[in-house]
Design a protein around this nucleic acid. Structure first.
Lengths: 197, 197, 197, 197
DNA sequence: AAGTAAACGAGACGGTACGTCCTGTCTTCTT
DNA sequence: AAGAAGACAGGACGTACCGTCTCGTTTACTT
């Protein structure tokens, strides 16, 4: 049996899609958050404005998508054999990425958009969720190894990303790689104690 | 010596100042973050726009000032005698305040502004600093009592507010009062271990 | 010598051509002048946009062509034997056609396009010229019959169509069939007097 | 009795109003009809776009107002003592104004806008009405002098402006000053005959 | 019957302009 | 002098349309 044609008309121009995301990310890294505007993205990407609005519902959504797109090159899931080791490796990679000026601007800009634009907020939460899941996977491996007892991991996960984002957004201190070790140890201790309660 | 005249002309209308801050706070609580605009604040406060710009440098500054103004009613420094007790009391009060829908909107709106407006960022950082100082004071009292060793408190402080703001901004979970106890215990343990390293 | 092959490939789809002209005319009659757009015509005709642009150089050209197409059903050249009679017959037919709401919209829309689009202007002038020629033929027959002297007919012809279009475009009055008689008489008198000067 | 204050706040900036109308008129004269855009007008007038939209409902309304504004410098009501003289003077002045390239562009552009924009149409009809009234005043003076019988003047008036606009819009001939004399004579004859019927 | 190429419906694309919204400043009259 | 009202320059937003380009399909006219 022949299924009807799924799509008619010109296909989506994927190079244009990438050019948009790249331009948006580049502008997000360069400019002050909030000064990035759609016309500039469109021009920089060599694209009409409508091509952006055909595929994203708002400026914020493009910006967030660009951020997520740029953040795809994250450290992969480490596996050192010990929970503390895995954790420290993850934290170092994460903090190091967050220390870079361009990435800081990117993430701050992303948050700025997410706070005004529900579409953007959705994308940001999706991104955050995937990051949390990466960390949770490490902790769950520790649980399955018996290094820490089974139990709720949400608090610990949110503490890690909380620290990161808090310093990122308020800017009074930069996420320090030196904190990775103590934080890893403390988290493992905290999760170990949990069963006692 | 002739001192210059202290003041000429109509005195500053303090009720207007309060009306502005109240309207701003009210709007910040009601509306979606970022949708609050100066005209609306002015109209709601029954005030001319220039009266706002006479006293604040930008929209963000008013909004942040309004937020800080509204946040003045924070729990005072507790003193239960034990560090864990003080900490838990502080966390409960803080988390409870942050759970309230209106306060959440207030803080999210404040952050939205701070991310685009340097004036606002300054005020927000000032506010955050005072909150961190309140927490640090509790921890320092613990140090002076010998409950925890002397050492760097920044990491612990930022972990607490990081957790709070992370959940506030991303919205995937609300700061939970139930977390206050475990978090207090964990923090004290973490700070106690620090000297070992 | 070998002449190149006259044609290969699919032949022009004439039903599509007619559907386009009909849809365009229908929209021109229905909608407010200037609000007719190519996508709507294409959709209404069940045709791709490119099929329109393959055969017409611009939106205006389609619209004008549609107007001319719709105006083909004009009263034929009358022949009552007397110039005043012919003229009155022509004017009545013309004014009656121009009174109809749909035709008014059609002509106004055509003019709207002609004023922005040189292609359309050309087609409109071609149409107007053929209408002027029809009137001029009547007057020339009067000249050959000796009812009016030989002389320039342009002023009289433009007076007739001027009155028509002026009322059509400004809309303060509709071309009235009752004016046809007086106007015919006046024109003949005017043309008769011309030789006196 | 004290009436409440009619208006508060900054007064309308009249120089800006005039700058807008002048810029619009200048662009209308220079550019092809339809290529005049609001941003260009605003920039040329050194004015924000909102200042235009605060006072006019649409682009067309500004353009039409500009046209009317520019057309204010029309020949005043002549008074030569005889109807034919008055009429000829009026027609010569009117046709001469309509012959000028800049004015032709202005009027064509005005009509183009009026055909798409109801706001503009209203303004254009207002202008046309005032022109018709000027002509009717001349004819009524002829009636009061007894040069022509009392009767309907609408047809004659519309014939004059019809001829003008028809040639203006279709562009096959320019309104000719040489036609003013014959036309004046013909109109008077036509109006004289009317009582006979 | 198979091959070829233009025409077709669909719809994405680069561009240009629209009219709205908002910020921070300026101006007017009032208190 | 400070205030309420509100006009102003500037600039971004998201929408609408134009005319072009590109899919995959259909259909006529060769060979």
């Amino acid at each position: 049996m022949q299924t009807t044609r799924a799509h008619t008309g010109r296909a989506r121009n994927d190079p244009a899609r990438l050019a948009i995301l790249d331009s948006a990310a580049a502008l997000l890294m360069t400019r002050r958050a909030g000064s990035v505007n759609i016309d500039t993205i469109a021009t920089a990407a060599g694209v009409g404005k409508q091509t952006i609005y055909r595929w994203w519902p708002s400026k914020g959504a493009v910006l967030l998508d660009a951020m997520v797109h740029a953040a795809r090159r994250q450290a992969p899931d480490p596996n050192t054999g010990s929970l503390v080791g895995d954790l420290e490796t993850f934290l170092i990679a994460t903090f190091r990425a967050a220390r870079r000026r361009a990435n800081r601007a990117l993430l701050r800009g992303a948050m700025a958009e997410a706070l005004r634009d529900p579409h953007a907020a959705e994308v940001l939460e999706g991104f955050a969720q995937s990051r949390r899941q990466a960390l949770r996977a490490i902790l769950e491996r520790g649980q399955s190894r018996g290094e820490i007892p089974l139990g709720d991991l949400d608090l610990a996960v949110d503490q890690v990303f909380g620290l990161l984002w808090y310093r990122l957004l308020f800017g009074h201190a930069r996420p320090s790689v030196a904190d990775a070790g103590p934080l890893a140890v403390a988290l493992v201790a905290q999760l170990s104690d949990m069963s006692d309660r």
